[in-house]
């Protein structure tokens, strides 16, 4: 049964990653791309979780937490940068 689950989740995650990458490539604005990159990181985290569940170990757990924090810091930084540049163009 685990083999079937692994196939199903692999297909779903691969399609999801493809969708996120298409949005990164096409996304009209920088924020769209950041959002899609965030989703791509979440998909990566999901893949790591599934690896842990199927192979019954916990080696990736800190990696999952680190990925979520990287996604958080990245999107917050970019969002601030975008907002400030547009809002106060003359600021040094």
């Amino acid at each position: 049964m685990m083999g079937l689950v692994l196939t199903l989740t692999a297909v779903a995650l691969a399609l999801a990653a493809a969708g996120a990458i298409i949005r990164i490539a096409r996304g009209p604005s920088l924020l769209d791309r950041v959002l899609a990159a965030d989703v791509l990181l979440a998909i990566l985290g999901a893949a790591l979780c599934i690896d842990m569940a199927v192979n019954r170990h916990l080696n990736n757990l800190m990696l999952v937490v680190a990925i979520s924090i990287i996604g958080f810091i990245g999107s917050v930084t970019v969002a601030r940068f975008v907002a400030d540049r547009r809002e106060q163009p003359s600021e040094p």
Binding site: A16, R23, A46
Partner: peptide, 19 residues
């Protein structure tokens, strides 16, 4: 197993929403 499949589907749903 059900949790894993649904969890993966949630990622797929996010990608569909993004597109």
């Amino acid at each position: 197993a059900v949790f894993m499949v649904v969890g993966a589907l949630m990622s797929l749903a996010a990608a569909i929403g993004l597109l």
